[in-house]
C-alpha cells in the first residue's frame, strides 16, 4: 500500500491511498493520519481512487480519524467510486459519518459545506 499526502489549501489535507488496506498495511495509514492531526490538520480528505481492497480494519481507522477530526472542529471526507469498496461502506452504514463521495472535487465541496454550516450555526448561537 502507498500513501501520499497533499495539501490542497491552508485548511485541507488529502491523503491518497493506493493498493490494499488490511490489518497488515493499516498501521501505516493510521500513522499518516495521526501525524496530520498532530500537525493541526483537522480537515482531511482520504482519496481511495487507487485503493482496491478495504475491510473492517481500514474502516475502523477511517471512522476513528473522522471522530478525531470532529473533536478538533474539523471533519473527514472519503473520495471513493469503486463498487466493491462502496459496498463495504454501505453494509457497515458508514457512508454518512465518513462523508463518502465519488471524487476529490465533491469531497472538497462537502467539507466546505460542513465548515460553512458550522460557521453559520456558531453565528446563530452567538446572536441568541
Amino acid at each position: 500500500m502507498r500513501i501520499r499526502m497533499d495539501r490542497v489549501d491552508d485548511h485541507v489535507v488529502v491523503c491518497h491511498v493506493s493498493g490494499e488496506l488490511d490489518a497488515y498495511t493499516a498501521p501505516d495509514l493510521r500513522d499518516a493520519l495521526d501525524e496530520a492531526l498532530e500537525e493541526g490538520d483537522a480537515w482531511i480528505i482520504v482519496d481511495l481512487e487507487e485503493l482496491t481492497y478495504l475491510d473492517s480494519t481500514g474502516l475502523g481507522i477511517l471512522v476513528g480519524t473522522a471522530k478525531k477530526c470532529r473533536q478538533l472542529q474539523g471533519d473527514l471526507a472519503v473520495a471513493c467510486a469503486r463498487k466493491n469498496l462502496l459496498r463495504i461502506f454501505e453494509i457497515s452504514g458508514t457512508q454518512e459519518i465518513l462523508n463518502v463521495v465519488p471524487d476529490l472535487e465533491t469531497a472538497r465541496a462537502r467539507l466546505a459545506e460542513i465548515a460553512e454550516a458550522r460557521s453559520r450555526n456558531a453565528g446563530d448561537q452567538e446572536g441568541t
Partner: peptide, 20 residues
C-alpha cells in the same frame, strides 16, 4: 467477480480475527 470480492473480505475478516 463481485462474489469473489465479497468472499475475499469475509475470508480476510475471519483470518484477521484469528490473528487479533
Amino acid at each position: 467477480v463481485d462474489d469473489i470480492e465479497d468472499l475475499k473480505v469475509a475470508v480476510a475478516e475471519a483470518c484477521t480475527n484469528v490473528i487479533n
